[in-house]
């Protein structure tokens, strides 16, 4: 089984870190993983995306060309990656920032109010990527929930130990993303 994913949005939305977290979760399971950023003259507010592969086999090209799952956190990302999603794949769109409806009917589209959830419900724009991670997790099942928590511990354990409030907020955000995806899937 090979999960090929692309996460895209504005620089500063935490997309790169979210991709690394998912790759780390795959590593926790002893799977083959790769993460590669789009790197250009990037800056906060510019476009950013990363490809993540989690696989039971050796990974060939790390730059994903036909993702089974893509996440578009802004309109620019939707326009760029919508056509790339493999037929039958999943496309998560941040409906808070993307006014345009999904165009393709041969993939499963999930329009989720990710930014609104962060700002209005969780009162923190910073947890946007954790909400998105929850949605991606729910949509792919690429790794177990336990591995996600292990990866969070590995990457932010020291910081979160000093800030239990942030650890709780991250967990809440992750769950909010899962619920949003499920709600959209039922609709």
């Amino acid at each position: 089984m090979m999960h090929e994913m692309i996460f895209a949005g504005f620089g500063g939305q935490g997309i790169m870190l979210m991709g690394q977290l998912l790759a780390q979760a795959g590593l926790e399971e002893g799977r083959h993983v790769s993460w590669i950023p789009s790197y250009g003259p990037e800056m906060r507010g510019g476009a950013a995306n990363c490809s993540v592969v989690i696989s039971d086999e050796v990974i060939g090209a790390p730059v994903v060309q036909k993702p089974q799952l893509a996440l578009a956190m802004n309109l620019q990302s939707k326009e760029r990656f919508e056509d790339m999603v493999a037929p039958g794949g999943r496309f998560i769109i941040n409906g808070s920032l993307v006014p345009d409806p999904p165009r393709r009917s041969d993939i499963r589209n999930y329009v989720l109010p990710l930014s609104d959830l962060a700002v209005d419900e969780l009162k923190s724009a910073k947890v946007l990527n954790m909400i998105a991670l929850g949605a991606v997790f729910e949509a792919t099942g690429a790794v177990s929930e336990e591995s996600i928590h292990k990866a969070m511990d590995f990457m932010f354990g020291k910081k979160l130990a000093r800030r239990p409030d942030l650890a709780a907020l991250n967990r809440k955000a992750f769950q909010a993303g899962r619920e949003a995806l499920n709600k959209a899937a039922r609709a």
């Binding site: 083959h32 993983v33 993460w35 590669i36 790197y39 790390p62």
Partner: peptide, 10 residues
């Protein structure tokens, strides 16, 4: 090359 240089792997 830039791809091998920029990618992360275990």
């Amino acid at each position: 090359d830039g791809v091998i240089g920029q990618m992360m792997e275990p």
